[in-house]
Design a protein around this nucleic acid. Structure first.
Lengths: 248, 248
DNA sequence: CCCGTTCCTGTGAATTTCCTGAGAAAGCGG
DNA sequence: CCGCTTTCTCAGGAAATTCACAGGAACGGG
């Protein structure tokens, strides 16, 4: 697995043979599966989806995914069983579990043990994509293809996805969890205008029902922390959205 | 056997020929075997599993594992018989026994006489991984490949996995068993945020059903012992988890 | 230059997340 | 069996974070 930089400046994961990464989405709620598939395709990944455990196993067999997104609550069998079947014939595939927050610790215990990961519903797409990237990065193929990078850089601004640390020009900057996700989304799309709707869709939970101006608010927070007294890197495109780029 | 540092900074055991270590897991409880396999694969090891004694012997024959994790209670034959068969054709392989806590102690004593080791169910994955590492390190191949390292260091904090001793800046620090495992997990993943769920999964027993705030509690304990009056090394990433890193 | 629109940001309150003391229960050594 | 240690639950309180609201600033089309 390697990272390349596309003409647009987006970095995307590729497999060693320079073919796009394949991800299998398993969820019985069709709209959610749809939402996920779209988001993952937007990442440049190849996506297939299944609505139940049996379908998942079948799909895995001929699709040979590099990673799986798996709802732990499925109509026919539970997450662990599906995982078992997948793993039986298909060793190393990393899995990202989707689980309800209130599902009293839905026996998440054990699920993340193997280096797999999980997110609780309702999640933000940014969260899912980030975790998935992490899993793929750390999976066998990534190691085989060389050094995996856990850090995003735009100009003198650096964001480390492992330690959740942010710094600009060497100075450490403290950001909150939401600020971190927003900044990560911006930095993953440098020099590209992102609309408030896009940002809301990616960074906030999919069922967020609040005011649209939280985005403005958090942009404001980030500016205070990142651009304070320096060449601004976060820019407003009135009527369009926001973008981040290195200062001249 | 050598230790190398992967791109992510994790150290992993390799065989003299720089091939991953091979581990055979023998347990008839499929979910447990699954859990173990996942955890061991995550360590970078190659894993095969068997559900009974006969299968174990067969698997060992063509898999030639560097270590075996063996449940002493198997449907077809008991641990001793399996061990006998394994050893008959395959001398030196170190074995980690899994045993129920109430199992008769002296039986185990006999089993571990040859430098093997055991853990009682329910165990924590950290425990199993650590013991297994110890066994492999001490086994023939490790000696052949040179010095094995049993100590973790982050800044001036040192943890010895063999003696279970911890010290910071030369001062010995007493930690309890649970504190030790938590600290070891943190130190094996320096500068990386570990979520409370991940920590719970790795450090606590797999059937632990308690409150998630034991993690907070033990972090608090560790801070009192390790960071007291010094530059803090254990940091909270609110909404994300905890991480350890050397103070500047 | 005016006006409607869009964006920025201070204030404050609700909520979430984390920390930690106190004590019950279980384990261990003598 | 007793006393000490360790593990863990519970609950209160502290602190950080998230978010709504609203007034004012900046912008851009006409």
């Amino acid at each position: 697995m390697t990272t390349t930089t596309s003409p647009q400046g987006r970095t995307e994961l590729l497999r060693p043979d320079r073919t796009p990464v394949r991800v299998l989405v398993v969820d019985d709620e069709a709209p959610l599966a749809e939402l996920l598939s779209m988001a993952l395709r937007y990442e440049g990944w190849e996506v297939r989806s299944a609505g139940d455990g049996a379908g998942a196993v079948r799909a895995a067999r001929d699709f040979r995914p590099d990673a799986v997104v798996l709802d732990v609550m499925l109509p026919d069998m539970d997450g662990l069983s599906v995982l078992g079947r997948l793993r039986r014939e298909y060793d190393d595939v990393p899995v990202l579990f989707l689980t309800a927050r209130d599902a009293v610790e839905d026996r998440i215990a054990g699920l993340t043990a193997g280096g797999d990961d999980y997110v609780t519903k309702p999640f933000s797409l940014e969260e899912v994509v980030a975790r998935l990237r992490g899993l793929i990065r750390r999976s066998g193929s990534a190691v085989a293809a060389g050094r995996a990078e856990s850090t995003l850089t735009v100009g003198d601004l650096v964001l480390d996805e492992d330690s959740h640390e942010v710094s600009r020009g060497g100075d450490a900057i403290h950001v909150t969890a939401t600020e971190f996700e927003l900044l990560r989304f911006l930095m993953r799309n440098p020099r590209r205008v992102l609309s408030k709707a896009q940002i809301l869709d990616r960074v906030w939970n999919y069922d967020f029902g609040g005011q649209a101006n939280v985005v403005e608010l958090y942009i404001s927070y980030l500016r205070k922390k990142i651009d304070a007294g320096r060449t601004p890197m976060i820019h407003t495109r009135r009527g369009a959205g926001y973008l981040i780029k290195p200062g001249e």
